[in-house]
Write a protein that binds this DNA or RNA. Structure first.
Lengths: 204, 204
DNA sequence: CCGGTTTGCCTAACATAGTTAGGAGTTTGG
DNA sequence: CCAAACTCCTAACTATGTTAGGCAAACCGG
């Protein structure tokens, strides 16, 4: 008589368990490293056995995939939070954007590896999980265009520069700031190159 | 009566087999990917079984380690070949050095992953294998200093920039030239930033 | 030339980890 | 209330790095 129930308790529970698995996976990845994550570990920590996880994810890579999607989706939220506060000065805005992404990447090694490196053999993000990554890039492209960086090559150069600094920092001085402290200078270099206003050239 | 024999046939044979194992490992890594390398595969291809490889290398990671050392040692040879031909113009020399390293990295994906990325879980190069990598960096640092790039931060910025371009190229456009073609511009940007002579600023 | 040692490779087997098969107990929807 | 669905389990398979132990050929001092 009654129509569909308002809540789908089954699906709700299923979703809750999926979330719990993912949270636990992040936890272990942060503790032991992304690659050291094992299904038996994840399962044990939530009071299950490994095969039971297959009721929630099709494979271990599907878990990585969901984590990948989460990481980029959450960064989208960070972008949302930042955008209203961006300076109208192109240079300052560029620095804020770069610093924000840099900090997000450096804050969690496992997450950075998953998002930005091919550290898991055989893992390739699915189109659905890749979508937020593409959107982050697209929003970055639009934002930079708004700031005066219209050239496609220039945007590629910016992403390479930023990615290079992040990788160097994580690989050669994790926890330190050897490359972190070069970030503003790098952005200035880039801005100078494009002739953006408010030049503050360094190192004569 | 006679002293030690001139040649140690035993060691020679051992070395030859080690080389054969490494060559085969490179071959498989290039074919299937670095992480997809298995000891059973390597062994089979040289007419052995997996455990026999342990007479030549202490572990699979020891094979990766030797490959890592080879890759960097071979690049040292490339540097040797390049150095005499370097232009006296800092900018031109910088471009040649950057392009040479870029091309070396891009020429072999598996090798690049091993040299420059943490793509093999748990693999950390030994001090001996790390040494040539350090020397490449050191020679680069000296060479750049000679060209007028004395600041330590500037050198770090250069390596980050170059590494960022390489990673972007390999990750997002393998086999293409989307970032490769930005290399000269990137070096000019860097040289402009440092005020090196022969400026050819682009993109007004 | 001969007996012991070393070397080179083997088979068997173990541990770990992802994954599949199949089943039992519980929940749930008609 | 019953059948279907769901949840989780145990057992087991596969792949792969690795260890144990053995056997035959090569080597070498006397």
């Amino acid at each position: 008589m009654l129509g569909k129930p308002v809540r789908d308790r089954k699906t709700e529970r299923q979703q809750a368990t999926r979330s719990e698995i993912l949270e636990t996976a992040w936890e272990i990845a942060r503790e032991k490293g992304l690659a050291e994550l094992t299904l038996r570990d994840v399962a044990a920590r939530i009071g299950m056995r490994a095969p039971s996880l297959y009721s929630y994810f099709a494979s271990k890579n599907a878990i990585y995939d969901a984590m990948y999607g989460q990481a980029w989706t959450r960064y989208l939220a960070v972008m949302d939070a930042i955008e209203p506060t961006l300076s109208r000065s192109p240079r300052a805005a560029l620095k804020t954007m770069a610093r924000t992404f840099f900090d997000y990447a450096v804050a969690d090694l496992a997450r950075h590896q998953l998002m930005n490196q091919r550290t898991i053999p055989g893992f390739v993000p699915s189109p659905e999980s890749y979508a937020p990554a593409v959107e982050v890039l697209e929003r970055g492209r639009v934002e930079l265009a708004r700031l005066g960086v219209q050239d496609a090559g220039a945007f590629d150069l910016f992403t390479a520069l930023l990615g290079g600094l992040i990788n160097a920092q994580q690989a050669n001085d994790p926890g330190g700031d050897r490359w972190a402290r070069l970030l503003d200078e790098a952005v200035d270099m880039f801005a100078d190159h494009l002739g953006l206003p408010e030049s503050t050239r360094r190192r004569a």
